[in-house]
């Protein structure tokens, strides 16, 4: 059901801080809300495939660099 969504680990926070971006700036760049950036960074939300690709393209990395399907975030 909806409560059993699979959440993956990601390196969004690391990538963002490496580039000196704020959460608001990244959110504006991706066209999502700041809360969504916070939720992805903290592992509470896994983005859709289109958004995952958008994030990877934004940072000029591959999707599997950004998201690690082997590591599931503890809920």
């Amino acid at each position: 059901m909806l409560s059993n969504l699979y959440i993956m680990k990601n390196s969004l926070r690391d990538q963002r801080t490496q580039r000196g971006l704020s959460q608001a700036e990244l959110a504006a760049g991706l066209g999502v809300s700041r809360q969504t950036v916070i939720a992805i960074e903290s592992g509470r939300y896994s983005p859709s495939l289109p958004l995952a690709f958008r994030i990877a393209k934004y940072f000029n990395v591959t999707v599997d660099t950004m998201f690690d399907p082997e590591e599931e975030v503890e809920q």
Binding site: V32, S33, Q35, T36, P47, L51
Partner: peptide, 11 residues
């Protein structure tokens, strides 16, 4: 709403 907020709305 973005995609996560749509999910919040659906839930």
């Amino acid at each position: 709403a973005d995609e996560r907020q749509h999910l919040v709305y659906l839930r």
